[in-house]
Amino acid sequence: MNTVDEHTEHGHHAHGAEEPHIPKDSYFIKVALWLALLTALETSTYWIHLGGFATPALLIMMTIKFFMIIMIFMHLKFDNKLFSLMFYIGLGLAIFVYCVALSTFQFFAS
């Protein structure tokens, strides 16, 4: 948790919160353009048939978009790692328990 140490001098900041370094607007606009591009690619699978590749490709694009938003737009990349930890515990548990539950229904076998 080094990030905390670095900011200890700012103990008198409003609410004692460290101020993470947040990029400028232009950076976020670039990220949004990438996201838009990915969405366009995703949507294109509706017209261009990739056969067996479609599902893995879509899942990969979904994952990239997911992490771009939470890391950059939601500042997880810049913020205190404690926030990431709290969120990832929930995310990890959700993926784990529901995948196990679905697999007992033979969901992934089909």
Partner: peptide, 12 residues
Amino acid sequence: HGSITGISNNKL
């Protein structure tokens, strides 16, 4: 004002 972790209650 001062939380021991230095992060905001609300955000956490």
